[in-house]
């Protein structure tokens, strides 16, 4: 994964903790920048500091992609997402 990639947020609904806001699940955006890496929260919620580390990406979504025709044509929402939340469409 790299800046400029078009990515879609997986339609995730795990039984435990998850850090992908529901309003971006299933939505497509563009990777803007790498944030670095961090403890994968879904796993960290269960096992703490032993959780695996994973890359985090800032993904930009247009207002129209998120909210349909009522979304702002010149609005961009940036969300930081762990790599395994994302897939190439």
């Amino acid at each position: 994964m790299k800046a400029g990639d078009r990515v879609r947020v997986r339609a995730l609904n795990p039984p435990g903790h998850n850090r992908a806001p529901s309003y971006v699940r299933g939505r497509t955006g563009v990777v803007v920048r790498p944030v670095g890496d961090g403890r994968f929260p879904d796993e960290a919620a269960a096992v703490g500091a032993d959780a695996r580390r994973e890359a985090i990406w800032t993904v930009a979504f247009t207002g129209r992609e998120l909210w349909g025709p009522d979304g702002g044509a010149r609005d961009l929402v940036h969300v930081d997402l762990f790599e395994s939340y994302l897939e190439h469409p």
Partner: peptide, 15 residues
Amino acid sequence: PDDVEVRVWDASAEA
């Protein structure tokens, strides 16, 4: 103004 782009940053991870 309408022609200004708005960028919202949703801090949901380590940044």
